[in-house]
Amino acid sequence: MVKYITRRIVGLIPTLMILLFLVVVMVELIPGDIIDLILEEKFSQNDEARIVLEHELGLDRPLVVRYFAYVGGVVKGDLGHSLWTDQPVAGMIVQRALPTIEIGVLSILIGAAIGILIGTISAVRQDSFLDYGLRSVAILGLSVPNFALATAYVVFPAIWWGVAPNMRYVGFTEAPVEHLKIIIPPAIILGISLSATLMRLMRTTMLNELRQDYVRTAHSKGLLFRSVVIKHVLKNALIPVITLLGLQIAFLIGGSVITESVFAIPGVGRLLLSSIANRDYPVIQGIVVIIGMFVITTNLLIDLSYAWLDPRIRYS
């Protein structure tokens, strides 16, 4: 197992190196002189400011040098400084990470709870009216974009009852209850989108498991159908669902950009959008790197847990 883990981690290095290369090259690809664009926005067009900025962005050095300098920085945990506030990028991301992580974790819990429950019911009552109904709702959940859902959440109560939900963000330490009131609606909205995909996979794997021989054996032993489902089938059917849940983390982070912007939550997604608007390239690069590394790591953990559960994978 140790050998397998080492092999997998070493295997990630080329992917990470390519990711970092793409991030460094991104600045190069922007059309027009990006220095001019930034200086125009900063209202400081003298030559001195230009030289300072060129140096800050590293554009006075060749691409290869810049690349290895960036990689070296990432290894040491240094992602550069914001062009506007001069704060270290890594610190800025850490500061904004909490609400994003909260919403992410909550929406995974909500999505998994709904998806697994409905998927199981749908599989056990296959082809019943209930099954068709639940599946249609799931696909409907997949079809309504989460930004439309978020907008509807804000608009409809206002039309029907004349109340607008409070959208002024407060930190958890300042007012815990108010904080949760703001965090929970976006988490539910992301959770609903998540549950639709999970529900469909849960139903498929459940149906597969229910046809296995051990189910018949347990049944003929005189066990109740319900206890066979809960004690055996559910456990086996959950493995692929958990994998999918891990893979959906990238989807959740993408979704956080939208929900954070609709609900005015100061998370990493909002930081990304505002940095793009301000052309704060070091911050954009830093966010992409951190998110990319996070996704790569979760994917690795899923693969490792698979290898741990199924020894055949380790030796292939």
Binding site: P14, T15, L16, I18, L19, L22, M26, L29, I30, P31, A250, F251, I253, G254, G255, V257, I258, L272, L273, I276, I284, I287, V288, I291, G292, M293, V295, I296, N299
Partner: peptide
Amino acid sequence: QRLVDAFQSVPYLIMLIAIMVVLG
């Protein structure tokens, strides 16, 4: 495949925004 891995590690919406920033 490593190139595909690297691209896939960036959530689709974030990657699309990044491309749109570059292209206009």
